[in-house]
Structures are given as structure tokens and as C-alpha cells.
Design a protein around this nucleic acid. Structure first.
Lengths: 339, 339
DNA sequence: TTGAAAGCGCTAACAT
DNA sequence: ATGTTAGCGCTTTCAA
């Protein structure tokens, strides 16, 4: 923080007020000569405003907080990019906070970001929350003086806007497709059991079976944690314990883990096993066998979340809104009729 | 910004000074009873400090700026994660700025972040800079009142610390390996022509040939832009214009594009063409043919960059330092003897 | 052991 | 057309 308004005021023999007025384009009542003098001096001195001071008096910092589990995850990286691109248009910056999927860090981060005066927070909650956490989240969100927008992971009990994929529909589409190919024994590799997305995708799975009039397999739920390794391990278990002909992984990363396991076991996709993923990350069409998956318009969700945050900043009275994005099944080479 | 020190002072009938003293652990000269009263009241009122105000008076915000071309790129995402993890340990936050690889946005972002009072900036420059840009960067960096640390992309003329992979050595390793397999006609898919990393890797390529006493192919430079599509297009050109038996792509993304092209053409890796990449992104070992590539310890570079920034914040007089990370060739299945 | 006062850099009513 | 003043929330001498 080098040059201040005061420096310019001294240099030009004018008051700080006048300088402030001019530099903020509120120049209506300032003579052209002084205005250009100020502008010139500011330029010469390389002046730029101290946004801390501005934020302090205006009670608005033009920053927004972004809390996500892990920026190195493609999903969240694209989300962040969408948000940042939109924010850039509005001269806002984002303060990033990775939580490593830990609920306590979500909670802590909300506090820290408020401390930093962010005008809004966009939150992708940790996936492994228990009831105690939920209560904390709910209290913090419901009483928050600034808008908190949840994305991807959310809870209907919270009084906040939420943007998310229609998970149930996505799972429904995926499983319906597998059923239509003739698979009867389709198993799932889920995310953490208590996460909403897991619950919703499971519901979509069951809905598809019901809708097709096919009876559910005896055991079809295998728990993962959205990381690659868990997909690998779940797949091993599936091979041992079931006669499944198709696997619906609740994200692409775990589908990748499943690929890995199948390759290790010398099995082929889709001949020995059909696989469907969820997310459509960059690489899912670059695999040995391009992955059939449910597309999630992540970048777009980020942009919309940003827009929503902006809206709620300017209109705090706006009704909280749940915005649903429609999924789209992308059929590639990892799925075929069972043999 | 709800509750302030003043509120606590009023509630406890003490002065703002005392409250501040206690809440900042500078409690040496405060009686135990008042101290616990203050602590209790702060708790009750859900007080948390306004960091804008703190930053304003302390001239330090405990934030650092991160400027990168694109957070959705695996390389930068991992870099960001490394930085954020390290910063978290020191109770600092990062303000993120994506530039879409545009030099003007780098320059603008430095300004904006300074305006926001960041204590340091970690900068991964845009790759397509011209001489005019370089001059601007140099001026801004050399005269910056706060430390600016460059990562990955940098320029030796700047007076700032730089962290980067030993690109020349990485390329040398990759090409030496291909030569040792018996390839004579190895071509490159480079990044933007005027980027340092491209120049360095090219130098490493030539060094390897020189070192092996093999004469350089007639044409071996094919320009890409570090994006997948450019790898695809370069590969097409290579197939048309050369008799290359091996391709060294300057990053994995372009190697992926090359894979795609080869698959389209019905050619096999490594039988018809050996491929080596650079970066070792997550997915390079999950491909149809796992990719031989030069590992770049991105997360680690991020952490070290963060440490360096922290050090230069506390010791502004510290000598600027260039920190080099040693590359490591990971041999997988995309390389074999030429046939 | 505690408090008063000044000031960080800026904005905005309210003079003049 | 321009300046005075107060104050955003906090820290930090200095005084009591």
C-alpha cells in the first residue's frame, strides 16, 4: 500500500474529498482543470485504492468466498473456473478454501471468510457429514448475515439457495439405459452413505428398476468415497460377491478405479462388465474404453452459482431458490448388452 | 460484520483497548476475572474480528494472491492445492485469479491483488508473452513492494524468486531414453514458441541428441499450445510430413491429443509410434496405453512456493532465489523400440 | 490493571 | 466548486 489519497491531495493542494470524488467518477461538481490535474497526478504516482479501507467503510469488499472439498478434483476445479469467470465480469475476486472434505473445515472456513468480509459464500459441503454437523451447518447458514449459496452438495433443510444436478434423474437415466440393454444385475458404487447425492442417485437407481418392472438384485450397494481407489476396491468386492454384469459408479473417478481393477483381473469392458460413470470429467472419453457417463455441466453450474450469489448480494430479500440442472447421459463404449 | 469490539466493551463496561488486548492473547497485564469475563462475552456474542480493520492497521492481511492461467488445468489445480494446504497451516488465505493465459490479465491481476492488500503474490505467468509484456512484467515485479514469486513460467531477467522444474533436464531424460531405445527420428510437440519452458525443453531435446552423437532430424519442431486439441493437430501433421517413430509431447494433454489422432488413424502405441509426455497428470497412467512421461511434482512445487512466499514476507531482505525441481522420467507402456 | 487518543485509508454527509 | 468532519473496526502508544 504505497500512495494514498492523501499523497495526491498534498501534491495537488486539494482536499482528500475532492480527490476521492474525482477518482470515483463522482465528478459532477468538480472543475475540469482540477479533475484532469488529479487524474494526471494519480497516474504519475501510480495510485491504486486500498480496498481494505474501501471495504471497511462501504461494508462491502467485492470478494466472495468459495469453499470446496478439493480444487484438484476436476469437478470442483471446473466449478471454480465458472465462478471465477463470472465474478471477473463483475470485478469481484474469490477467496478459495479447500476443506479436504472435512466438515469442521467447512464450518471454520465460513467463519474465516466472514471475518475477511466476503460479500457472499459459495459452499460445496463436505460429503461425510453427520447429524451434529448438519445442525451446525443449519444454524450457521440460517443465521448468516451474508448470502450462502450451496452447490452440488446441499441439504433441503437449510434456508439457502442451492444449485445442483438432478441426481435422481441422472441415475435414473443411467440405470434405465443399462436395463434397456438387457442387464438385470446392476450394482452401484456409491459415494459416502450419508451424502445427499448418494441417497438421490440410489433413489434414481431404484426408480429405474421399478419403472422397468425388474426386481432389484439381492445386493447392489457398494460404498465408495468418490475417490479412485475406492472404486478399485469396490470392484474387487463386486467380482467376489456378485454376478453383476454392469456397474454404475456414482462418479467417474471411481469408475476409473473399477477399470483399473478389471484390467488387473484380465477382464474386458464392456464384454465382461458394462460400466457407467457420473460427472463426465475431461478424461472419460480418453480411456482405453471411453466411458459412458452422466454429464454434469459443472462450469455452467459455477457460473449460475456466481450469478445467484451476485443477485442475493444486491437483493438480500430475494427468495431462496433451488436450481436444478438436468443431467444428460453420454453413451460411449463402456456399455453393451450382457453376454 | 456483526459484533464489534465496541459491543463487547459496552457489554462488559470495559474499554475497547482491554478487550482487544485480551482477545489477542496479549493479556499479560489484565486481571484473570476481567479476562474471563471478556472471553465469555465474546463467545456469547459470537464475536469474530473484522480482518479488514485488522489488515488496515497492521498493514498485513494474511492473504496471498495466486495468479494462474487456468484452475481447471490439472497442473495448476495441484499447484493451487499445494499452496493452499501450506497456507492453511499458517492461517492464511489465497485469493485466486484465473487469467485464461492472457498476459494483460496477469498484469491487471497483480494490480487488483495489491489493491486488496495481499502480502505476497504467487504468479504463474501466461505462456504467450511478447517483449512488450515482458517489459511490463519486469517493471512491475522489480518495483513491487510485496514479494512476487513466480512458478513454472518465469523469466531469468526478473528480480524475483522462481520455482520451476528443470525443464531442460526433463526433456533430456525423455529424449535420451527414446534414443537409447533406438529411435533416431524423434519429433516434438511444443508449447507456445516464445515460452521459456518450450525453449528449455527444446534445448534439452537437442542436448540429448548431441550427447548421444546422433544427428538431428530434418524437421522436429511442431508447435502446440499445451491444449489437447493442438496435440491432435500436430500429430496429424507429423504423420503427413515426417517419418518419425517417436513423439515427445511437451505436456500430457497434448500427448493425449496425439493418442486420439493415432487411434483415429488406426495406428498403435507404441508399435507404430512411441509417445512421451510431460507433467504426469493423474490420468496418464489410466490411458489405453499408460503414458511414459516426465513427472512434475506439482503439489510439492506449490508447497515450496508458499513457503518461499511466507519467508519473503517475513524477511523482505532475503535474497531472491531460483529453486529448481528435478524431473523424473516415469516409464510406462507408450514407449518401445522402433520396429 | 485499565483507558484515552490517535490513526490505518477511505467515503459521505454536511458545510462553505 | 471544494473542504470539514466523522466514522468504518481495529491496534497501539502513552497516560492514569
Amino acid at each position: 500500500m504505497r500512495v494514498t489519497l492523501k499523497d495526491i491531495a498534498r501534491e495537488t493542494n486539494l482536499s482528500v474529498t475532492t480527490v476521492s470524488l474525482v477518482l470515483n467518477q463522482k465528478e459532477c461538481r468538480v472543475s475540469d482543470s482540477t479533475r484532469s490535474l488529479i487524474l494526471k497526478t494519480a497516474e504519475k504516482l501510480h495510485y491504486y485504492p486500498n480496498q481494505l479501507a474501501v471495504g471497511l467503510v462501504k461494508q462491502e469488499t467485492k470478494t466472495i468466498g468459495l469453499i470446496i472439498p478439493d480444487i484438484s478434483n476436476h469437478f470442483f476445479a471446473n466449478l471454480a473456473l465458472g465462478i471465477d469467470d463470472e465474478m471477473l465480469k463483475h470485478d469481484r475476486n474469490i477467496i478459495l478454501s479447500n476443506t479436504n472434505d472435512r466438515p469442521e473445515r467447512d464450518l471454520k472456513s465460513i467463519q474465516v471468510l466472514k471475518s475477511r468480509g466476503v460479500d457472499a459464500i459459495i459452499l460445496a459441503m463436505a460429503s461425510n457429514v453427520d447429524q451434529t454437523h448438519i445442525r451446525s451447518y443449519k444454524y450457521i447458514i440460517d443465521t448468516s448475515p451474508i448470502p450462502i449459496i450451496t452447490v452440488d452438495r446441499c441439504n433441503p433443510a437449510f434456508n439457502c439457495s442451492a444449485l445442483k444436478l438432478n441426481n435422481k434423474k441422472g441415475a435414473y437415466n443411467a440405470v434405465s439405459y443399462l436395463l434397456s440393454l438387457g442387464h438385470k444385475n446392476i450394482v452401484c458404487i456409491t459415494g459416502p452413505a450419508n451424502s445427499d447425492s448418494t441417497q438421490e442417485r440410489l433413489a434414481g437407481y431404484e426408480w429405474a428398476y421399478r419403472d422397468a418392472g425388474v426386481s432389484l438384485p439381492e445386493k447392489y450397494v457398494f460404498h465408495g468415497d468418490y475417490l479412485k481407489q475406492s472404486g478399485n476396491e469396490a470392484m474387487k468386492q463386486i467380482l467376489q460377491e456378485t454376478k453383476a454384469t454392469a456397474v454404475f459408479a456414482f462418479n467417474d473417478l471411481m469408475a476409473l478405479g473399477a477399470y483399473h481393477c478389471l484390467r488387473q483381473e484380465g477382464l474386458s469392458i464392456p464384454e465382461d462388465m458394462s460400466i457407467v460413470g457420473f460427472d463426465n470429467i475431461d478424461f472419460s472419453d480418453m480411456l482405453e474404453v471411453p466411458l459412458t457417463t452422466v454429464n454434469q455441466p459443472t462450469y455452467e453450474i459455477g457460473r449460475e452459482a456466481a450469478k445467484r450469489a451476485l443477485l442475493e448480494i444486491t437483493s438480500p430479500e430475494a427468495e431462496k431458490q433451488t436450481i436444478s440442472f438436468e443431467p444428460h447421459l453420454i453413451i460411449r463404449k463402456s456399455t453393451a448388452k450382457p453376454r
